[in-house]
Design a protein around this nucleic acid. Structure first.
Lengths: 241, 241
DNA sequence: CAGTGGTCTAGACCACGAA
DNA sequence: TCGTGGTCTAGACCACTGT
């Protein structure tokens, strides 16, 4: 009942987790593994893509497939990042609202926005791309010159919230909507991976309910996890909750 | 620079979104589409799987590929579900902690747990599977007899939280950790889809920091979205936040 | 039964990385 | 230059659906 690709993926996963292959070690080439399991190369590649999506294996074009520690960088908007091994670049520009942006930000089409584009890198491959938008009707934020990748900055565009706060605009509510999809060609090139991506659509409102910022974040699904923390406000326990 | 599969996916997406194909309509068979685009059938299927992961297309084995309204059922733990078209089954049993459960719930291996298994169905195919665990050292919840699929119940196991509250145990903090991966064979059969799944690992603690429940939720990535709302507690605006 | 998508085969060619 | 993974071809066979 189980397919060959999953049978192979399960077998390789067991080999890796039981220590048959060390972290950082190169797996046998796909051709060799296909011979070993007596399947065709495309079938073996399907099995490999299961392990890649789990973060257990990293494929490097031209070099091989490598066993990976399945550590994932946590995406948690508004929380300070502990990880400072990420290089983050920023690019800022003025754009006109189009596509889904007018409905995301509840502004008229073609209205002026400030766009912040963050790209984070882990070694040579990108880990995330975040585009944060602030309507210029909300705040006419300054547009500094773009900065090269550097460490210690939030990869998710959290500093836009700080800029807004400095301008006297305080975010009261943030709603995040998350889906999974396959990467576009451009995303696959940047992330150096064709595993599924996590896409976060984020809208921030002030206490009056006005949308003051919106964002799209694309995360490499094999190297990131999304963390949400919810503190239930517990009053005195009553009969109904 | 763009691959054939993405070129075809982009073209089909345009056709669908511009109204060339109506919602609910069957697309031409993969063989016919492959002829039309002058590519092999496997390549066309790659393009189709991009649209399936986006929720724009639903493939039904033996019938064809159908255009879908990309509506997604929102997963939002603790919020009342508006959608009552979902049929939800529950199964309850006692299990021993093994695998990752001891570390998830911070209990010794082999300790007793109550397991609640929720499966939600939309038509014939499953949409989600949730397994909720409560250590019996926290609460010795009754084990009622399993119930057949019925509507109006939370698919994510929210009623376990109500059961705990009724037993005097109040959840103060819930942390959700979300990743994306490819489905196992069993999951693919239940969900009738091989598109990526969203996996939520959830832990709930009381005010004392004791873990009172944990859960794993598997969501069909093409038909669900995860929604998280965060209310920033805004006091009087000060210099630093 | 015929037609459909799901899985698999056995190759080909290209892009990339290291020597 | 050579070995690697990434993309693609042109089929095959099976499982599922409706008639």
């Amino acid at each position: 009942m189980t397919t060959r690709q999953h049978h192979i993926a399960d077998d390789l996963r067991r080999s890796i987790e039981s220590g048959g292959f060390a972290v950082g070690e190169r797996l046998p080439s796909e051709t060799r593994l296909a011979e070993h399991y007596k399947v065709s190369v495309p079938t073996l590649r399907e099995a490999m893509s299961v392990l890649k999506a789990e973060g257990l294996v990293e494929g490097i074009h031209g070099r091989g497939n490598f066993v990976r520690e399945p550590h994932r960088i946590p995406y948690a908007h508004g929380h300070k990042m502990a990880d400072s091994t990420l290089q983050v670049s920023v690019d800022v520009r003025r754009v006109k609202a189009s596509g889904v942006l007018p409905s995301l930000l509840r502004v008229p089409a073609q209205s002026s926005l400030t766009e912040y584009e963050y790209v984070s890198y882990l070694q040579r491959s990108a880990l995330s791309m975040a585009r944060v938008y602030v309507p210029r009707s909300v705040a006419k934020l300054a547009i500094p010159k773009p900065s090269l990748p550097r460490a210690g900055r939030s990869p998710w565009g959290d500093d836009v919230q700080d800029l807004l706060a400095a301008a006297g605009i305080h975010v009261a509510t943030t709603v995040e909507r998350l889906v999974s999809r396959l990467p576009s060609t451009e995303e696959a090139q940047l992330l150096r991976s064709t595993t599924p991506v996590l896409v976060v659509q984020r809208t921030s409102s002030d206490a009056a309910g006005r949308i003051v910022a919106g964002a799209f974040v694309v995360l490499a699904g094999d190297r990131t996890e999304v963390i949400f923390t919810n503190h239930t406000h517990v009053e005195a326990p009553r009969g109904t909750r």
